[in-house]
Design a binder for these strands. Structure first.
Length: 266
DNA sequence: ACCCAGGGTAACT
DNA sequence: AGTTACCATGGG
């Protein structure tokens, strides 16, 4: 039985919002704790009034995985405090504490390929079946299968996922990543425009999926994915474009606006 | 039964 | 260069 690792609740941090605002698809709430897998590790996390509790977690795992995953070195308070726009201020007022998770690039790419023309509950289902079928580890705690693993499979092998027309896109992405045709290290280091062009060489990856991959998988926070909800936001609120205060951190504004606008319809 | 979903592709004008 | 049908599947 390992010990828990506990830190004071960071400023501008809300665990439930981070994990359930449509950027990551492998987390679920069991009542008080959030359970999920990232970077090959299963964990349960709990947010209290004053603390963040990482259950069965060593200090080493916190420092090498979770501190980075939750982007704890980034000063979100400073970023959202510079919003001088009424819509953004309202979104932050209602949903303060959303952060852009630093997800694994391959998981982000594969997840958002699956997301196309799909709804979030079903995206989660397909990804869950993908991990259960082809990931490693214990049931319900399996790792996200690597590109190398998926590159050995065929479209027919993916039938149990019920991913529809997306199956062929998953295979193509896995092959191009596994054989080095797509170089994640270079995408990480080069300006965002390189990643945009590179990722769209994959079948089934267009502007939007590329943008999501760059934002969530490579932490290019200037990326600005435009899905049907953001399209509505732009038409309804920003016909002349985003306000100046979001320059350079458009992806963070996007996440607040996306979640805010989606919640309005419920 | 119907419309829609964190879109992309290919085949049209 | 700018539209549009079609793609699998299932949630609401």
């Amino acid at each position: 039985m390992k010990n828990n690792f506990i830190i004071p609740l960071p400023k501008t941090f809300n665990l439930a919002l981070c994990l359930d605002c449509g950027q990551a698809f492998r987390w679920h709430n069991d009542g008080s704790k959030w359970c999920g897998v990232a970077y090959g590790k299963y964990i349960t996390i709990e947010q209290t009034e004053t603390e963040l509790i990482f259950h069965n977690c060593t200090e080493e795992d916190f420092n090498s995985i979770w501190k980075n995953y939750f982007d704890l070195d980034c000063d979100y308070e400073k970023i959202v405090s510079e919003y001088d726009d009424n819509y953004l201020k309202q979104a932050v007022k209602e949903y303060n504490g959303i952060r852009i998770l630093r997800q694994d690039p391959w998981e982000a790419l594969c997840s958002f390929i699956i997301s196309q023309n799909n709804n979030i509950p079903r995206i989660k289902g397909i990804i869950e079946r993908l991990c259960e079928e082809f990931g490693d580890g214990e049931t319900r705690q399996k790792t996200f299968p690597s590109a190398e693993k998926l590159a050995t499979l065929t479209v027919e092998d993916l039938a149990p996922l019920r991913a529809g027309f997306r199956a062929k896109y998953i295979i193509d992405a896995a092959q191009k990543v596994a054989n080095g045709e797509i170089d994640f290290q270079k995408i990480k280091n080069e300006p965002i425009e390189f990643g945009r062009e590179e990722l769209q060489k994959i079948k089934g990856v267009g502007a939007k999926v590329a943008e999501c991959t760059l934002l969530y998988g490579f932490h290019k926070i200037e990326a600005f994915p435009i899905d049907v909800w953001v399209k509505r936001i732009m038409a309804e609120m920003y016909p002349d474009g985003l306000p100046e205060c979001t320059k350079g951190t458009e992806g963070i504004a996007q996440q607040y606006l996306f979640h805010w606008r989606r919640m309005q319809n419920k």
